[in-house]
């Protein structure tokens, strides 16, 4: 099952840990906030996580200093 990494933008402070752990998924923008390299239907708040990246994504969820990340199953995709 594909999972997506949901970014809660109201919490995110752009500390940069997730972008280090998931360099193939996220980069940092001008202000340090995570920027999804690939948009899914124009939505760049919920990048899809490939099976190879799941462990790193879990680590990112765990270590995010602002608790701004969560992994959610594809079906329960947040409203766009």
């Amino acid at each position: 099952m594909t999972e997506i990494l949901h970014i809660d933008w109201t919490r995110c402070d752009g500390r940069g840990l997730c972008t280090e752990l998931l360099p193939t998924v996220l980069v940092r923008d001008d202000w340090g906030y995570p920027l999804a390299l690939q948009a899914t239907n124009g939505n760049r708040s919920n990048p899809a996580i490939s099976p190879g990246n799941i462990e790193a994504a879990r680590e990112a969820v765990h270590l995010c200093p602002k608790l701004a990340l969560s992994l959610v199953p594809e079906q329960a995709k947040p409203r766009q």
Partner: peptide, 8 residues
């Protein structure tokens, strides 16, 4: 040292 390692 990357940031996540610093946290750990």
């Amino acid at each position: 040292i990357p940031r996540f390692s610093m946290t750990l």
